[in-house]
């Protein structure tokens, strides 16, 4: 069932190609805005700007999760499948989408602003963990925001404070990968990040049954 739902997400994305092209273009535009605004980027600034790009791109990529299909069709899915499975499929799909987006952003950003990353293995792990954390929090918030009328604004104000612990941990870990901070015990931060993810995903599954039905 999970596999079918996941496949549905991919097929949907493939058929509505304008959505994914839009997001990719959005990422490239932001990268070039950064380039145009500051030609020479210091590693400290590189780190912060990179995560800002990822943050905004992620919100814009995930916000459509629950609004791209009509309410009637959503209801139809909920009759066919377990809502929790539907949410899980969306979280997995969004994780993969965000991972691809952050790799694209990293590639484009490295070309225009240079690549100060010293520990590429750690940085790749951080991108994966970041995509996972963003996907869990944003997908769930998108499901709440989709019920309201001004969902784009609501999505931003609801998700920024919630994402803050994840974002700060990511920026710190990424500063370690850039060798801006010396910290040999960064494994603890990774465990913290996974713990936050675990709390959020558990709550997501407990609370989603109250969100989807109208």
């Amino acid at each position: 069932m999970l596999f079918t739902l996941l496949r549905k997400e991919f097929v949907l994305e493939f058929r509505q190609r304008y959505a994914i092209s839009g997001i990719v273009l959005y990422v490239f535009s932001m990268v070039f805005v950064v380039y145009a605004a500051s030609i020479k980027v210091q590693p400290q600034v590189w780190n912060v700007l990179f995560w800002l790009i990822i943050l905004f791109a992620s919100i814009n990529a995930v916000v459509k999760s629950f609004v791209q299909e009509s309410g009637a069709r959503q209801l139809y899915y909920y009759q066919l499948a377990d809502p929790a499975m539907l949410l899980l499929a969306k979280i997995i799909y969004n994780t993969l989408l965000l991972l691809v987006l952050s790799l694209l952003a990293f590639g484009a950003y490295s070309v225009v602003a240079g690549n100060p990353v010293k520990d590429i293995g750690l940085f790749a792990l951080i991108l994966l963990l970041g995509s996972l954390g963003f996907s869990i929090a944003f997908t769930f918030i998108a499901s709440i925001a989709a019920k309201a009328n001004n969902s784009a604004t609501l999505m931003a104000i609801l998700s920024f404070p919630v994402i803050m612990p994840i974002l700060l941990t990511l920026v710190r870990l990424s500063a370690i990968a850039l060798r801006l901070i010396q910290d040999t015990s960064y494994q603890r931060d990774i465990v913290n990040l996974l713990a936050i993810d675990a709390i959020l995903i558990t709550l997501t599954f407990v609370l989603f049954p109250f969100v989807w039905r109208d």
Binding site: I144, K147, V162, M164, T169, R172, D189, I196, I199
Partner: peptide, 29 residues
């Protein structure tokens, strides 16, 4: 009723992220 339900969901979700915000993140900085 709908507003109350979704606000309740967000309140619980937000409270859960308040714990790392106030007790885990400050330990790292």
């Amino acid at each position: 009723e709908k507003g109350a339900r979704l606000a309740a969901v967000y309140n619980i979700f937000a409270f859960a992220s308040l714990i790392p915000l106030l007790y885990i993140v400050p330990r790292m900085f």
